[in-house]
Amino acid sequence: MPTASPASPRVLVVMPAWNEEESVGATVRSLRAAQPGIDVLVVDDGSSDGTAAEAARAGAIVCPLPFNLGVGGAMRAGYRYAVQHGYDVVAQVDADGQHDGAYLPELIAALDSADVVVGARFAGRGDYQVGFVRGLAMRLLAAVLSRLAGTRLTDVTSGFRVINRRALHIFATHYPAEYLGDTVESLVIALRTGCTVRQVPVEMRPRAGGRASQTPVRAAIYLARAVIALGLALVRRWPTTLEHPPKEHV
């Protein structure tokens, strides 16, 4: 159950994790040390290693999925858990240790003027580097979504973000499961349903465990998929407002 006091927003960190045994425990402990008043839900996305056990050992609530759904499916399960248990704010944090929990208060404070706040790597903090092709895709996506949002967004594929209750009820029902949908399409959904999106500059850390899988070929595939994902997100029809909140069950 939420541990925040009644006067404070109830905050849940949802951490999707697939075969992150090497890093998830340290990531959970780091979050709990930096922000002791929040709860951490690790959604074990059908892992074949000890991810669930390591997360539980570190003090997280664990939601095991029977098979791999991808980040979008794992996050939708997390959002439904948050609705069921009455949380006011939900943060998405990666299990590989790249997202620094010390930034969470700053991201949460920005919800005073937004429904979705993205922790942005390319907004003046740190020196996060990506390859040319992947960077090109990110800039293209950011340019289109900035126009849609009416504000400058530099890192629309960032998985480090927080949302309020308004966005939570939308995402618990409509959060996309497709590749890149959990980042790009989810922002389109938020904007099309009347939510306000803004960003806060953050510095991200190297992976705490495992290894990245980027190669020139995969970067090219990423670019193609990113363009397709954005195109599909823009042509799909979404309600201008959420007429009915989702049923509160996971």
Rank of each mutant, 00 (worst) to 15 (best):
G97Y: 07
H99A: 08
H99Q: 05
D100V: 07
D100R: 11
G101I: 12
G101Y: 03
A102Q: 05
L104G: 03
L104M: 02
E106C: 08
L107G: 12
L111I: 04
D112C: 06
D112G: 03
V116M: 10
V116N: 02
V117F: 13
V117Q: 13
G119P: 09
G119N: 09
A120C: 00
R121F: 11
F122C: 14
R125S: 05
R125N: 04
D127C: 08
V130C: 10
G131A: 00
F132E: 10
V133E: 01
R134Y: 12
R134G: 09
G135I: 12
L136W: 04
M138K: 07
R139F: 03
R139K: 12
A142D: 03
A142F: 03
A143E: 14
V144W: 02
L145V: 04
S146D: 13
L148V: 02
A149M: 09
A149G: 14
T151Q: 09
T151G: 01
R152C: 10
R152H: 13
L153C: 08
D155E: 10
D155L: 05
V156S: 02
V156F: 03
V156P: 00
V162R: 02
R166K: 10
A167L: 15
L168P: 06
H169P: 01
H169G: 12
A172L: 14
A172T: 06
T173M: 11
P176H: 07
Y179N: 07
D182N: 12
T183M: 13
T183C: 08
V184L: 14
V184G: 08
E185K: 11
S186Y: 06
L187Y: 00
L187D: 00
I189E: 10
A190H: 04
L191C: 12
T196K: 15
R198M: 05
Q199K: 07
V200R: 15
P201G: 10
V202E: 14
V202Y: 10
M204G: 00
M204A: 00
R205L: 13
P206T: 12
P206Y: 06
G209T: 03
G210K: 07
G210D: 01
R211H: 06
R211W: 01
R211P: 11
A212G: 10
Q214H: 15
